[in-house]
């Protein structure tokens, strides 16, 4: 899952074959470089795999074990079979949370990719001020998400919040209490999610756009393509694998996103913005039901692995 997904390995293979032909006369040197380094590779990979095993694989095993137990946060685990899972699939809040988590993740990912692509296209067309904008647009990704979320949640307060004040000055009314209604609370949260993630996606996509050979575009101009046609006919198809990759990643990140939602709404009102990570946190640390929380985490994990796999497949097949 990487920006240059398939291409780097192609480069790799070419560089390695090149190396072979280049260095074959100096066989001695080549053997020296590889043979000893293969051992070094194995040695240096040991800590990588050990740490990943301890910090990723073991916790996953532990979570699965916890998900088939009852545990209040203290004392021994009490095995309960698949009760936690049965509960999850029959629980209305869980169904609701799954639904809004998917909605939240997909809409943030879609908007992020769409806006970032447009911005990248504009910047690559050298709009005025693009050098400064390249830097400025990443500010939201740099500021601590907690601070950002606290600012935005205070701005969405009716009457006194900045957003309402500005709307009021524009004559659009100043009493919108979006965060206070379970029908609308998710939208400001999506907005802030998009606002803070676009900068990163933009830089990645711009990197890809800038790799498109100028000659391709020049050829299109010669063929009489206008700006929009250049974008839809040349730029877009060429960067599609990257868009797919970043869309997939953005879904995964947003799905796991805890900080922004927690700081803005605590999952409320009446659990209307309790996306799965928040529901799991509350389940475990507020209600002391670690078993169901772990079951939620496992279900989420499985879902994300499916999304990830599909995402990788799609971005690959797009390219072939």
């Amino acid at each position: 899952m990487s920006v240059k997904n398939e291409s780097p390995s192609k480069e790799v293979s070419t560089s390695i074959t090149q190396g072979r032909t280049l260095f074959s006369p100096k066989k001695k040197a080549r053997i020296g470089l590889n043979a000893i380094n293969v051992r070094s590779a194995r040695i240096t990979l040991i800590p990588v795999f050990v740490l990943l095993f301890v910090f990723l694989a073991l916790p996953m095993i532990n979570s699965i074990q916890l998900s088939v137990s009852r545990w209040g946060g203290l004392g021994p685990l009490e095995p309960v079979g698949f009760d936690n899972y049965k509960f999850l699939f029959s629980d209305a809040q869980m169904r609701y949370s799954s639904r809004i988590t998917i909605f939240y993740a997909f809409s943030v990912a879609f908007l992020v990719v769409a806006i970032a692509t447009l911005l990248a296209a504009a910047v690559s067309a050298n709009v005025r001020g693009h050098k400064a904008m390249k830097i400025i647009w990443f500010f939201p990704g740099i500021a601590p998400p907690t601070a950002v979320a606290i600012f935005w949640s205070s701005s969405f307060q009716p009457e006194s919040g900045v957003v309402n004040v500005i709307l009021g000055k524009l004559g659009l009314g100043n009493a919108y209490a979006w965060l206070a209604s379970s029908d609308t609370a998710l939208y400001p949260v999506i907005f802030v999610g998009v606002w803070s993630a676009v900068g990163f996606a933009f830089l990645v996509i711009l990197g890809a756009v800038e790799q498109i050979p100028v000659s391709l575009r020049e050829a299109a101009v010669v063929d009489g393509a206008n700006v929009r046609q250049q974008f839809t006919k040349i730029t877009l198809p060429l960067i599609r694998p990257i868009l797919m990759t970043i869309f997939t990643l953005q879904i995964i990140w947003t799905f796991n996103g805890f900080t922004v939602v927690w700081a803005m709404t605590n999952g409320g009102p009446s659990d209307s913005t309790s996306i799965l990570p928040i529901l799991a946190y509350k389940e475990a640390f507020r209600y002391g039901r670690f078993g169901t929380a772990a079951a939620m985490a496992v279900v989420t994990g499985i879902f994300l692995m499916i999304v990830g796999t599909i995402g990788i497949r799609l971005s690959r097949s797009e390219q072939q």
Binding site: F156, Q157, P158, E159, A175, A177, W178, L179, A180, S181, S182, A185, T265, G268, P269, S270
Partner: peptide, 11 residues
């Protein structure tokens, strides 16, 4: 008050 479900007690 308007927006009460979005306010905590301190607010």
């Amino acid at each position: 008050q308007n927006g009460y479900l979005g306010m905590d007690l301190d607010q």
